[in-house]
Design a protein around this nucleic acid. Structure first.
Lengths: 208, 208
DNA sequence: TTAATTATTGACTAATGGTCATTTTGGTGC
DNA sequence: GCACCAAAATGACCATTAGTCAATAATTAA
C-alpha cells in the first residue's frame, strides 16, 4: 500500500509562488552546483533540496540533468555574446577585424573575471555539443552575428572565398585558444596567446 | 544473511583466460557501446554483459565509467597521431607547413573514413578534457611532436615569437575546424573548410 | 462560494553504481 | 598426479540515484 503525504500546511508558503521563479531558482541552483562539483557529482536531489522545491517539480520543467545543463549552456553563452556585441556597438570601432577582436577580447576578459562561468563551460561542454551550440549561436537570427559579418564583408569588399566558413573558423579558433591557454597556463598564459590569435585573425580577414 | 554463489562449474571456461585479454575485451566493448549509445546511456552492467565478464572484474581494472573513457580517448588519439606522423615520415615532404598539413589531412581523412571513431570523440570528449588531452599529446616525449616542431622552426629560422603557442593554436584550429565542419555539414562541409584552414596555417607559420 | 484547472508535492519503484566474501584459475614444488 | 598458495574472477548484495504518479495545494473561472 502506498502511503501518500498527509495534509500538512507548509510553513513558508507564498514566499515565491510565481511559476517562472521556480524555474529560475532551479536553473540558478543547478548552475552553482554544476560549477562547483560538476554535473556528475550533482544529483537531482541535491538541486531540488538547495532550490527548495520538491523532486517532482524538477521533472515538470526538465527531462533530466542534461536538459537543464543544455538550458544553462544556451543561457550563459547567449548572454555573453549579447553583452559583448552591445559593448562593441557602443564603442566606435570601424574596421571589421578590430570589431571581431574587440568582441573576443571582451569575452576572454569576462571569462577571466568570472572563473565560475569558465569552469562551468569547461566541465559541462562536450566537443560535439560545443560545435553544435556555437553553430546555433552564429546562426541565431535574433543575435544576428552571421548577418552582421556577411554584410560587413560585402560592404568592405573583402576577398574571402567563403566568408561564412571564415567566420566559423575565427570563432572556433578564439574559443579553443582561450581554453587551451587556460588549461595550460604554464609556461605561457592567455596574454602570450592573444597577439598571435589577433594577428592570425587579421591575416584571415585580410582587410587592407 | 548473505547467500553467496554456490559452487557451479562454468560451461565455457578457459576460452579466454589471459589477463590482458579481459582488459582489452572491456576496452573494445566499452568503445563500441560509448560510440553507438554514448557514455550516458551505457551502464557498467551493459559493458560487462556484452564483454562476457562479471561486474566485479570491471572494477579490478577501472575506477568507474569515466576512467575507461579516459583510457579509450588516450588510446585512440595516441594511435591516430602516431600513424599520421609515421606516414608523414615515409613521405618525402620538406617544408614544415606542408608536413603539418599532411598530418592534419591524414587525421581528417582517417576520421571521415572511420565515423565511429569521430563519433566516439564527439560524444565523449568534454572541452576541458579535450584541451587537457591535446596538451598531453603535444608534450608527450615519446611521440615528440613538440620537439620536432621546435627543431624545425629553429633550423628554418622561422620568425615566430612563441613557436610553442603557435603549435598549440594550429592543432586547436585544425581540431575545432574538423568538428565544426562535421557538425554543420550544411551548407558546406570539410572540403570547403580545408583550403581556408591550410591557408591560415601557412600564414601562421609564414615560411618563405 | 464553488467547481475546474493547473502546479506542486514526496513516498514509492526501478535502475544503476559500487562492495566484498567466496570461488576459480594458474602456477609451483613435491 | 596432489597439495598448496596467490592472483584473478565472480555475482549476490547493499547504497545511491533516477524517475513516476496519486494525492494535495494553489490558482483561476464561473
Amino acid at each position: 500500500m502506498k502511503t501518500y503525504r498527509v495534509s500538512k500546511k507548509p510553513v513558508f508558503s507564498k514566499i515565491e509562488s510565481n511559476k517562472s521563479e521556480k524555474l529560475n531558482k532551479l536553473l540558478d541552483t543547478a548552475f552553482q552546483l554544476f560549477t562547483y562539483q560538476g554535473i556528475l557529482h550533482t544529483s537531482i536531489q541535491d538541486i531540488v533540496d538547495k532550490a527548495g522545491v520538491a523532486k517532482g517539480t524538477f521533472y515538470l520543467y526538465f527531462k533530466d540533468k542534461y536538459e537543464i545543463q543544455d538550458h544553462l549552456l544556451v543561457r550563459t553563452s547567449y548572454r555573453l555574446f549579447k553583452d559583448a556585441h552591445q559593448a562593441c556597438e557602443q564603442s566606435n570601432i570601424q574596421r571589421l577585424d578590430d570589431k571581431i577582436i574587440f568582441v573576443i577580447d571582451y569575452i576572454i576578459d569576462y571569462l577571466i573575471q568570472h572563473p565560475t562561468v569558465l569552469n562551468f563551460i569547461k566541465k559541462n561542454l562536450s566537443l560535439g555539443l560545443y560545435s553544435e551550440k556555437l553553430s546555433e549561436l552564429i546562426e541565431d537570427d535574433h543575435l544576428g552575428l552571421k548577418e552582421i559579418f556577411l554584410e560587413e564583408v560585402k560592404q568592405r569588399n573583402l576577398a574571402l572565398s567563403h566568408p561564412e566558413v571564415t567566420l566559423y573558423m575565427i570563432i572556433e579558433l578564439a574559443g579553443s585558444t582561450l581554453f587551451s591557454s587556460i588549461v595550460k597556463s604554464e609556461p605561457v598564459g592567455i596574454e602570450e596567446y592573444k597577439p598571435i590569435l589577433y594577428d592570425t585573425i587579421r591575416k584571415m580577414i585580410n582587410e587592407k
